[in-house]
Design a protein around this nucleic acid. Structure first.
Lengths: 209, 209
DNA sequence: CGAGGTGTTGATTCCCTTCAATTACCGTGG
DNA sequence: CCACGGTAATTGAAGGGAATCAACACCTCG
């Protein structure tokens, strides 16, 4: 377990930042909105959630008193944030700490970017595990591999089926059956068990949101 | 999707850091080991995985060329890292950037800590979604709530059952049934639907690893 | 060639979802 | 104060998707 239950007694350090209050179920920021702030929870509870095109909803995290959220690897928020109950927040301009990176004595910019990328991917992964079916997970996985590959539509799987299963929260058998189905559906073509050609990348992408 | 497929052409910036090579399936670091380094992937592929007491395994992430990993909110690594195939890595002492925080012009230390906490929790969440049953997820959720609560064995759920379901990757019905079962098993006691007493926290913790 | 790890395919089981109905809760207004 | 309406929560029955159990094919390497 992570928490390291920090002393959340009373108010957290306010420092320089705008304090705002939110009513229950009020949106703090929307998915797609410019990621301009890091946010600290002074009081209340926040949920970070994303909604799929078919209505499925997924909550990636709850943020309680003392927690900070809003870290994004991209320019826009990739999930919306909503107050669960009456909530008080402090908004810090994200620009400041990011720009402070790379200055002498500061955190190397690459490290900060890597951390944010790590956060973003972790959230995507949780979303996948929380709300995707076996086929959807496999599609997402192939797309992910494709994006890390030189030749976009040609993927070499360095890992075993067991690795893939453990990554996608499935069993080897389900992974194997899923790939077989994607083959039947004309989505992929096998050169060997570890090398495959993606025949319809757009559709593979579209299988999820 | 996250990646923002950065130019991973050839070698990433080496900078100052020890370069080491690993054979396929060789362990880079173990879960529980002192988290001394941030690691950059120069070549190959890395899997970050954790094993449960009953043998279940979960891979939280794959790291490819250009990715950096090893960010930990605690003093020790919470998952082990293994080379999937022949892999080259650069090790940077994590101490340096962390200590650089808080210096004038540097990144505020609290922000860095929050980001690392965010990464750690996100990984835990993915692990839960990837390998836990409904009852296990609920147990973990209650323990999580307990740790954020003033009175350890008394929890107030601010969120709806739907929120809990969307967080745990379940349906409201399953959440409701799971809580009912935990009640039957003498794990919890209901004051109201939103307020409950944890009767056996040690066992609740032990339901997972 | 044989052995073992890796991958595929089939049959069955089971956990969770889905669909449906009922009950509890809470704020509002008569 | 209590009836009313709507949301939230619980409970039941049936169905489905992935896990499990089991057998077989494939590939690599000594």
């Amino acid at each position: 377990m992570q928490p390291a239950p920090q002393p959340r007694s009373g108010a957290a350090p306010p420092a320089i930042g705008a304090v705002r209050s939110f009513a229950a179920n009020q949106t703090i920021y929307f998915e797609g909105e410019l990621a301009a702030n890091f946010v600290l929870v002074l009081d209340g509870l926040v949920r970070s959630c994303s909604t799929f095109s078919d209505g499925r909803r997924f909550i990636g995290a709850f943020f309680a008193v003392g927690d900070m959220f809003g870290f994004e690897p991209l320019a826009t928020y990739q999930a919306s944030a909503e107050a669960v109950c009456q909530t008080s927040l402090v908004f810090y301009p994200a620009r400041d700490p990011i720009e402070a990176c790379g200055t002498p004595g500061g955190l190397p910019k690459q490290v900060l970017e890597s951390m944010m990328l790590c956060i973003g991917r972790s959230r995507d992964h949780a979303r996948l595990l929380g709300r995707f079916s076996a086929i959807e997970r496999l599609s997402a996985f192939l797309v992910e591999c494709s994006e890390r590959s030189k030749a976009r539509d040609f993927v070499t799987l360095e890992m075993t089926r067991q690795d893939i299963a453990d990554y996608l929260g499935l069993t080897v058998e389900t992974v194997s059956r899923g790939l077989a189905q994607l083959k039947r559906d004309g989505m992929v073509q096998f050169v060997s068990a570890r090398q495959l050609k993606l025949l319809d990348l757009p559709t593979l992408r579209a299988i999820n949101l």
